[in-house]
């Protein structure tokens, strides 16, 4: 056991950190700077990070989920408004069914509450199905039940929905009456274990994204607590404020440990175990991230409740990442199921 990053992994983290620090949004106004966002997107594109889970030799992914999680964490920390999680999950679907790589930007379609991928039943997608992390994507992948599992099909997307939850990652509606085109040539259907492993990747990546968001908001809040003065002193000198931030830091560090393990588990463990490990991480990180982001808002006081303060941008990003494949409650249930506790009438 040695859970330190390799020198290559450290270098990957450093280059991702540099890209988001240089080109990511630092103010709410920056979010409207399309030129800056295009540069960030071009940097991510040039780096090949969105293809980490594409098929390499013998259909193995080009990189492990640990590398993908390293990118997800740094993008979360820097509130990167360039697609990553959606594109990575789409690439993983293509890899698992042995489909050729995408020729254009794409993402994945989910059910309306994002708790599961959208499955087209007899050619119809569930009401409110939506594509996540859809900036620059003209299409999304959805699942189609077939003998022995699921096939993967491509649907085209309407224009982006104006970002309401996550200001850094707009969703898109799936075009009404759009044709559904099965990916081909496909070697095999997605098995139940494939779907577990794919879900594990999604849980691992969103956990890493949440860890990044927590690091980011904590750093902004600590900076503000050191600068903002009341009663003639910095508010960060008050124990009441210090203890809130200390609790946030502790929650973030615990999350970091479980998210790291989740990223490793995606490829290293059997599918059932990988799903349980990543669900455990996602439950922990979801609960922590909401608390940490709320602390970020509270430390900023009245300003923290205004649109122009970055604190809510972190919270909003967290709210999306929490919902993708389920947050604390859904993943607690997965953990209980894995341990054979809490039957079907349990916590759903």
């Amino acid at each position: 056991m040695d859970v330190r990053f390799s020198p290559e992994q450290q270098a990957l983290r450093d280059s991702a950190a540099q890209a988001v620090d240089r080109l990511g949004p630092h103010t709410v106004r920056d979010l409207e700077d399309t030129e800056r966002a295009a540069k960030l997107d071009a940097a991510v594109e040039a780096s090949g990070w969105r293809e980490l889970r594409a098929a390499g030799e013998g259909r193995a992914p080009l990189a492990s989920a640990v590398e993908a999680a390293i990118i997800a964490e740094e993008m979360g920390r820097g509130l990167a408004d360039a697609p990553f999680v959606g594109a990575t999950l789409a690439a993983e679907l293509r890899r698992l069914v042995g489909a050729p790589p995408a020729t254009a930007r794409e993402t994945v379609g989910f059910v309306a509450d994002l708790s599961a991928p959208a499955v087209a039943d007899r050619g119809t997608l569930p009401a409110g199905a939506v594509a996540i992390d859809a900036r620059h994507s003209a299409s999304a992948l959805v699942l189609v039940p077939v003998e022995g599992g699921h096939a993967v099909a491509e649907v085209s997307l309407d224009a982006s929905i104006p970002a309401e939850v996550d200001l850094t990652r707009p969703a898109a509606t799936i075009a009404a009456g759009a044709g559904m085109e099965r990916l081909g040539p496909v070697e095999q259907p997605l098995t139940a274990d494939d779907l577990r492993r794919w879900t594990a990747l999604g849980l691992g990546l969103t956990s890493a994204d949440l860890v990044g968001v927590m690091r980011g908001v904590l750093s902004v809040a600590c900076e503000y607590a050191g600068a903002r003065r009341q009663y003639g002193v910095a508010i960060g000198s008050f124990q009441a404020v210090q203890h809130m931030l200390a609790d946030a830091c502790v929650a973030m560090e615990g999350s970091r440990s479980v998210a790291l393990h989740a990223a490793w588990a995606v490829d290293a463990l059997a599918a059932e175990e990988a799903l349980a490990a990543t669900a455990m991480a996602k439950a922990y990180c979801s609960r922590a991230a909401r608390m940490v982001c709320e602390t970020g808002i509270q430390v900023h006081g009245g300003i923290g409740n205004t649109w122009d303060c970055m604190a809510h941008v972190y919270l909003r990003r967290a709210l999306l990442a929490i919902d993708v494949l389920g947050g604390a409650g859904a993943n607690l249930q997965r953990v209980l199921d894995h341990n054979g506790i809490g039957g079907a009438d349990g916590l759903r």
């Binding site: 607590a225 050191g226 002193v233 960060g236 000198s237 404020v241 210090q242 931030l245 200390a246």
Partner: peptide, 8 residues
């Protein structure tokens, strides 16, 4: 607060 977060 003081030694990790660097608060005053």
């Amino acid at each position: 607060a003081s030694r990790i977060l660097g608060l005053p």
